[in-house]
Structure formats: structure tokens, C-alpha cells
Design a protein around this nucleic acid. Structure first.
Length: 654
DNA sequence: TTAGGGTTAG
């Protein structure tokens, strides 16, 4: 039955005896207002009225079908088109190609495209965008060449499609090549093309270039999408303050932010120190009417839990009338990061009871929670859960599980999983190398690194960091220096501060303090407290008071509130018999109001966390623990390990 | 043309 009443508003203002043109305008109006079902009803009514659809009608109806994404409906529509005398018209066939592309039916789209007797720029674009969105860069480039061979002039849509394909392939070089092609052909004047470039460069990590393009768009031409693309770029790299500053400029310029702006901004707000600003954005979202959008609520839950305000996150979650898998994951992730495994598991069960199944991201949040809490048993349970739910075939899940096993000290489980993985990525190898380094399996770490290279995998900056850490902990100076040189010479990876820290630590531990200091002085970035601390520790081990004083001056300047630094320097003076130096440090600590908070270790036994500090006698089984420790030290000495560090090596201070 | 929950290091 045709509900004629529901479609009359679109027709009544034109005529009671509509022509094909009037039918087309009415259908177009319904589609543009988002009323796709009404558009289809109008189309049906048009045919029942005896009006024959023309080459303009079909593309509009195809657009309605696209929005409804119902393959059955599309098939019915296709049969209508075939029967029509306009079925072979280029507009109509292009609309069909586009419809199949939007439904993800690329084979059907391409079959139709290949049989088209005439193709215009829109037909080529529809197919090209289809391949681009599926990440087939090779096919996109091939189609682009064929298009130019067929003497069809590419336009801004072609350009956007090409950029999307390069983004899928994460090919920054190709993005730049297409950018220069776009400039040569004058397509950069189109704001939507410029917006795509901003998005492309920021996704590839080149935020400076994104800024250059953004600045190049005239103020009165910039759209909300231009601003959103820039803000999303900062959000991708968790640069909240930059994102916020652009948001403020956007407001100053009189533009009204939309849901996308709020979502990006919220997703970049991930630190406790920004919680207040996050709350302000939340209220902006309410003013703008965005919080009725479920995605915004999900992101708010995530924002509050990442900023450490799990209570607000839970309030929002509990107040939701409808929850998706993303909502459950956001709150589970919050509790899991907090280390609250009881609540995490409770929510996982509640999720199942509510009829939602955990997906890949939910599983990753759960595994990462176990890793942080050191909950090996629960981690194993999640492993079997993933296995029985068909999620254990996923490389990312396996990588997270390997990391969990390694960080919980269960290297055999990590190995078992690593070796049965049918396919491994650089992340898998890096996780395993890093796990070996963490657990003192230095030879295995280096063997894995070489096997990885032999298999033709390209290590990244994190792989090198893991390898350098293995070398540092094992004291393998030559090997470490070899890998450090390999980074730049073979793999063209510029070492970061962390890599320099590792090498400085490696040199310092071996007593090459002058060489370590020289490295710190010549490196291209400003040394941080970490690298100076490594040098200070080396000065302490090798009793180098002179360089120790120089290093500590830098450290005091950078952060005068770090207690360890005073302790280390006092130890250097004490070991040199310079008691006036020790006294001076004590005075500095008092003057700067520094208090030494002891470091803590946490271990879970039978699901219960136990917290320890240095020389902690407060544990209920403290006496037993220390007698066991003394026993172990005695046994080690008997085995020939004579140079054990003293348990109370720290100089009494504070 | 822009957007939500997440794996390797730190």
C-alpha cells in the first residue's frame, strides 16, 4: 500500500497533475532532506500514476537506495532500470555503479562499469572512489591511467579519491605526488580538495604541512570541515592543547562547531591535567546539542576515564538509554586501565547479559588491563575466551597477549603463542624482543632480532629501542653500538631521545662516562632528566665526582623536585669521603622542600595485590619474607656470586 | 572533504 498522505507535502506545492520534472524535483527534495524511504514511495507512486521515469529520475532514486543500504532494494531498483528505455544512459549507469560501490559490492560495480558503452568523469570517479575506499591503491592508479588514456579530464572528486587510496596504503610519498599534480592542474583552489589534503597529511603525521595547507585557505573560504580536519589531526597525536587552540580560533571566527569537532576535541583530551577543560568541552557539547549523539557519549565516557574521573564516566554510562559495543568497551577500558579487575569482569558479564558481544577492541582493553595489573591468571582466561570466540586468529590480539605474558613474567606462554602465530608483523617481533629484554633473555632477544632481519622484515624505531635495551641490560657495548649505527646507516631511522638514553646508559655502565657525556652533548635534541639521570647513575657506579657534579647541575636546573637525584649525588660525595658535599645536598633538599617518597612494587598473589617499598617491614609476613631473602643471598654466595649489591645501599637521607 | 572504544616503547 502506498501511503499517499506521507508524500503529499513534497508534491502538493507543485501541481495535482505532476509532470516527470515535477516528480523528479519532489523525489530529489525528499532525498536531500534525508527521507529516503519517502523518496522511494514517491518513485512508486510516479510509476503508478503512469509517468515514465527518465535519465534524471534514476540517479536520484539510486541515491536514496545508497542511503538505505539494502541490497535487496537495490536489486529491485536495478531491474526497474534495465527495463527502462533510459537504462543504458551514462547518468543512470553511473548512478548504479555508485550504488553498488556504496554497498561494498565492488565486483558488481566493476562488471557494470566495464560494460558501459559511454563513461564520463563521474563514472570513472565512482569506480575509482570504490577501489580507493577498499584500499586497492594499485587498481586505483591503474584506473587513473586508463582514465587519462581515454582523454577524460580528472576533477576534484578524482583527486580526493586518489588521496584516499594513498592514505589507505599509508603512502606519504604518493600523497605528495598527487598533491603536486593537484597544484599543477589548479585543483587546490577547491576547498574540499584542500580539506582532504589537511586530513591526509595529518594522518601521515606531517602536521606542519597540514598547517601550511590550512593557512593557505582564505579565511572566508575555510569551512567547518577545514577546522575539523585540523583539530582531528592534532587529536590523532593526542595534542590536546593544539586542538583546543584551533577550537578557540574557530569560535572566534564565528563558526559553529559540529558533532565532529566535539568528538575530535574530546578524543584528544586524555590526561588528568586537562580534565577541567574536558568538562568545559562537555558543556559546550550540551549547548550545541551534540550529546544526543551516542558517539559523543561514548567518547565522553572514554575522555573521563582516561583523565582519571571514572565516577563521571560511570554516571554517563549508567544514564545511557541505549548502549553499543563501543559504549561497553569505553567503560570496560576505563576500569581495566585503573586495574579494577573485579569491576572489569562484572561489566564484561553484564555486557553479555545485555546481548552485546565483545569485539576486537573490547578484548584489547581487557588484555591491556591484565598487563597493567599483572593479572596472569585472568589474562590466561581471556586468552581462552578469545580462542573460543574466534578472536585469537587476529594478529593484534596475539601481539597484546604476548605482551601480557611477557610483562607478567610468563615467557614460556609468550613463546608458545609467538611460535604458533601463522603470520607475524613487526609489532609481534618487537613485542617478543622487548619481552625477552625485560625478562633477562638477552641472547634470545638478539637472536630474534637477527631472525626477523633474515626474514626480510623492516624493524621500526621501537624494535631498535627494544634491542638497545637488551644490549644495555646485558652490558653488550659493541653489539649495542653496532645496532645504533645500523639504525641510521641501514634503515634510515633517526634515533630519538630514548635511543640516545639507552646508548648513553650503555657507555656509562661500562665506565665510558666521557664518551657518554660527549654523546649527550652532540645529540640533536635537548637532553631530558632521564638521560642525565642515567649519566649520574654511571658516575655513582664508577665514582666520578667531577662529571657527577656537572650532570647534577643540569638535573637540578631541569627538575629540582626529584628526590632520587639528591640521593644519587649525596652517594657520590659519600663514596669519595666528601662529607661537606653530603651536607650541602642535605641543605639543598631542605631548602627546595624535597621529600623522598619510596618507590613501590606491586605483585598479585591469589588475586590480592601486595605493595612493597624498600626495606619494608610492615607486611604481615615480613619476617618470613626477609628470612627467605637472606637464605637466597646465602645460597647465591655459595654458588659463587660474590659481588651482590647490599640490601641497604642507599645513603640515609631525608 | 571531517568524527567514537585499541596492540609493540615511554
Amino acid at each position: 500500500m502506498v501511503k499517499s498522505l506521507s508524500v503529499t507535502p513534497y508534491l502538493s506545492r507543485y501541481s495535482s497533475f505532476p509532470t516527470v520534472g515535477i516528480w523528479n524535483s519532489s523525489i530529489r527534495e525528499a532525498v536531500n532532506q534525508g527521507h529516503s524511504r519517502k523518496a522511494l514511495l514517491l518513485f512508486r507512486q510516479m510509476k503508478q500514476n503512469g509517468s515514465e521515469p527518465d535519465n534524471f529520475t534514476f540517479p536520484i532514486v539510486a541515491k536514496a537506495c545508497c542511503k538505505l543500504s539494502d541490497p535487496k532494494l537495490s536489486l529491485v531498483f536495478h531491474t526497474h532500470v534495465v527495463k527502462s528505455p533510459f537504462g543504458s544512459h551514462v547518468f543512470v549507469q553511473t548512478a548504479l555503479v555508485d550504488m553498488y560501490v556504496k554497498h561494498g559490492q565492488l565486483v558488481d560495480a566493476y562488471n557494470l562499469f566495464e560494460r558501459m558503452p559511454v563513461r564520463d568523469v563521474a563514472s570513472w570517479n565512482a569506480m575509482l572512489v570504490g577501489f580507493a575506499q577498499s584500499g586497492c591503491l594499485g587498481r586505483v592508479l591503474c584506473l587513473f591511467h586508463q582514465m587519462r588514456f581515454a582523454a577524460v579530464q580528472p576533477d576534484s572528486v578524482t583527486c580526493v579519491g586518489l588521496i584516499q587510496a594513498c592514505l589507505h596504503a599509508k603512502n606519504l610519498k604518493m600523497v605528495k605526488a598527487i598533491h603536486s599534480y593537484g597544484i599543477r592542474t589548479g585543483m587546490d583552489a577547491d576547498v574540499s580538495v584542500a580539506n582532504t589534503w589537511i586530513g591526509a597529511y595529518s594522518k601521515c603525521g606531517d602536521l606542519d604541512l597540514a598547517k601550511v595547507i590550512f593557512d593557505g585557505i582564505d579565511l572566508d573560504v575555510r569551512t567547518v570541515v577545514s577546522w575539523n580536519s585540523m583539530i582531528a589531526g592534532f587529536a590523532n597525536f593526542e595534542k590536546f592543547l593544539d586542538a583546543l587552540s584551533y577550537y578557540k580560533s574557530m569560535l572566534h571566527g564565528g563558526l559553529r562547531p559540529d558533532t565532529s569537532t566535539i568528538l575530535s576535541l574530546l578524543s584528544s583530551c586524555v590526561q588528568y591535567e586537562f580534565l577541567f577543560q574536558g568538562t568545559l568541552i562537555h558543556s559546550h557539547g550540551i549547548q550545541l546539542g551534540c550529546v544526543s549523539d551516542i558517539s559523543v557519549v561514548n567518547t565522553l565516557i572514554s575522555m573521563y576515564s582516561k583523565c582519571g574521573d571514572i565516577v563521571s564516566a560511570r554516571l554517563l554510562f549508567d544514564g545511557m538509554s541505549h548502549r553499543t559495543c563501543v559504549s561497553w568497551t569505553a567503560i570496560i577500558s576505563g576500569y581495566s586501565k585503573k586495574g579494577d579487575l573485579d569491576e572489569t569482569l562484572g561489566l564484561l558479564h553484564a555486557m553479555g547479559a545485555a546481548g552485546e558481544k565483545p569485539d576486537l577492541v573490547t578484548m584489547l582493553s581487557l588484555i591491556s588491563g591484565c598487563t597493567q595489573a599483572g593479572a596472569l591468571e585472568l589474562g590466561k582466561w581471556i586468552n581462552s575466551y578469545a580462542l573460543s570466540n574466534g578472536l585469537r586468529d587476529n594478529i593484534i590480539i596475539c601481539n597484546a597477549l604476548i605482551d601480557m605474558y611477557a610483562k607478567c613474567g610468563s615467557m614460556n606462554d609468550a613463546r608458545d603463542l609467538f611460535y604458533i602465530m601463522p603470520e607475524k608483523t613487526v609489532v609481534s617481533w618487537t613485542t617478543m624482543i622487548s619481552g625477552c629484554a625485560l625478562n633477562g633473555e638477552f641472547k634470545e632477544a638478539l637472536d630474534l632480532f637477527h631472525t626477523m632481519l633474515e626474514r626480510g622484515l623492516k624493524p621500526n624505531h621501537i624494535t631498535f629501542l627494544a634491542v638497545l635495551q637488551a644490549c644495555t641490560h646485558a652490558g653488550l657495548l659493541e653489539k649495542g653500538m653496532e645496532c645504533f649505527a645500523m639504525m641510521t646507516n641501514v634503515y634510515n631511522i633517526a634515533p630519538g631521545l630514548d635511543h640516545y638514553s639507552c646508548v648513553a646508559d650503555l657507555l656509562g655502565r661500562r665506565g665510558m662516562i666521557i664518551e657518554a657525556l660527549k654523546l649527550v652533548q652532540i645529540m640533536p635534541m635537548k637532553p631530558d632528566t632521564g638521560i642525565w639521570s642515567a649519566l649520574l647513575a654511571a658516575c655513582k657506579i664508577h665514582r666520578n665526582r667531577e662529571i657527577g657534579e656537572y650532570v647534577s647541575r643540569h638535573l637540578f636546573e631541569l627538575d629540582p623536585q626529584v628526590a632520587v637525584l639528591y640521593v644519587e649525588m649525596a652517594n657520590i660525595y659519600a663514596s669519595d669521603g666528601k662529607w661537606d658535599g653530603v651536607a650541602a645536598i642535605r641543605r639543598m633538599m631542605k631548602c627546595n622542600k624535597v621529600k623522598k617518597l619510596p618507590g613501590q612494587s606491586v605483585i598479585q598473589v591469589n588475586g590480592k595485590p601486595h605493595v612493597f617499598t624498600v626495606e619494608d617491614r610492615g607486611h604481615p609476613e615480613g619476617l618470613l619474607l626477609y628470612s627467605m631473602l637472606d637464605n637466597l643471598i646465602l645460597q647465591l654466595k655459595e654458588e659463587g656470586y660474590l659481588h651482590l649489591p647490599e640490601r641497604t645501599s642507599e645513603h640515609e637521607l631525608g
